[in-house]
């Protein structure tokens, strides 16, 4: 009797242990997962974080609470540093864009995308240039021509040291380095500068280009390989003979050293979320083509951006002084 009982106990314990061992993988996540967002609540990046927060919480297989923590400041670098320095246990992840690379290039941070375990990307945003519909250049080609004939006569509203500065600068360089970059600030400031006639053009996301059309902004070129469906009449840079391609990624980051099995759980959760129709709809409303892009592709793209940006850093610094 005693023997039976103890044997049963041993079996029970052993059974518990095997399930415990078996679930060591499946147990992640067993506490809330934190998403650090480098902007205020209410912005485009924050909106995307919250789309996935909802999707994860409804996902029974993931089965954990998700908390969004906003940590704006210093061009997103406060938050990216916080993500980088977090415990690599898979319970702290974050979301940011290509500014990750430009901040490092400008020396604002001492780390770039290689300091993280990249989970993947939930899509890239198409970009383009907009001009003042009334007083601006007729077309992208007309703008390039004017810049060649009269250097510095085309002014570009930028936000120094960020992708919105580097991308038009690449256009200018490809055209012979003849456009003048003028600091304006965030999206609304750049719009105001172009519409007020103080500058000629600025970089916007395709979604912004569509939205600001009625305010008087005219899209003239997109930086994609092919024309974008939202703006079928707008040519690409390549059509105009300028070999500059650019997008803005929505990149999910984890601190370096997260166990591979946990990364797999996260990636699987993203892939499941992106198959949900409402997530697709919501992402499309942010101007994103919904597709989960794996970490190798994201790393390759960010490294490409870094290699493009680094040679231009001195020019960017010089422009400000």
């Amino acid at each position: 009797m005693n023997i039976f009982r103890s044997a049963a106990a041993v079996l029970a314990v052993a059974g518990l242990m095997t399930t415990a061992a078996g679930n060591a993988l499946a147990d992640y996540p067993e506490k809330p997962v934190k998403i650090i967002v480098p902007t205020d609540a209410g912005g485009a990046i924050d909106g995307i974080a919250r789309i996935f927060q909802r999707a994860f919480e409804q996902d029974e297989e993931f089965g954990a609470t998700v908390v969004v923590t906003n940590m704006p400041g210093a061009g997103g670098t406060l938050a990216t540093r916080e993500i980088k320095d977090a415990d690599p246990d898979g319970y702290t992840i974050g979301l940011w864009h290509n500014g990750l690379v430009t901040s490092a290039a400008m020396g604002v941070t001492d780390f770039d995308h290689t300091a993280f375990d990249i989970i993947g990307s939930t899509g890239f945003v198409a970009l383009g240039l907009g001009v003042n519909a009334e007083s601006g250049p007729e077309s992208f080609e007309a703008m390039l021509e004017q810049a060649q004939q009269e250097p510095e006569s085309i002014k570009v509203a930028v936000n120094i040291g960020l992708p919105v500065h580097f991308i038009p600068l690449m256009v200018s360089e490809a055209n012979g380095g003849n456009m003048r970059m003028v600091q304006a600030g965030g999206g609304a400031k750049r719009l105001s500068s172009v519409l007020g006639g103080h500058t000629h053009t600025a970089l916007f996301s395709v979604q912004e280009l569509v939205k600001y059309r009625e305010s008087g902004l005219k899209p003239v070129v997109v930086f994609s390989e092919e024309r974008v469906p939202q703006l079928p009449d707008v040519p690409t840079t390549r059509e105009a003979g300028i070999d500059v391609l650019a997008t803005d990624g929505r990149i999910w980051l984890a601190p370096k050293g997260v166990p591979e099995d946990r990364m797999q759980v996260l990636r699987a959760a993203f892939e499941r979320a992106m198959e949900q129709p409402e997530v697709k709809d919501q992402l499309e409303s942010y101007g994103i083509t919904p597709a989960f892009i794996d970490s190798d592709a994201v790393t390759a793209e960010l490294s490409r951006v870094r290699d493009e940006v680094l040679p231009l850093v001195e020019k960017v610094r010089a422009a400000a002084n």
């Binding site: 210093a74 120094i160 600091q183």
Partner: peptide, 10 residues
């Protein structure tokens, strides 16, 4: 103090 928007530097 902080990130200066006018030249993108700390």
């Amino acid at each position: 103090p902080g990130l200066n928007a006018s030249d993108g530097q700390l």
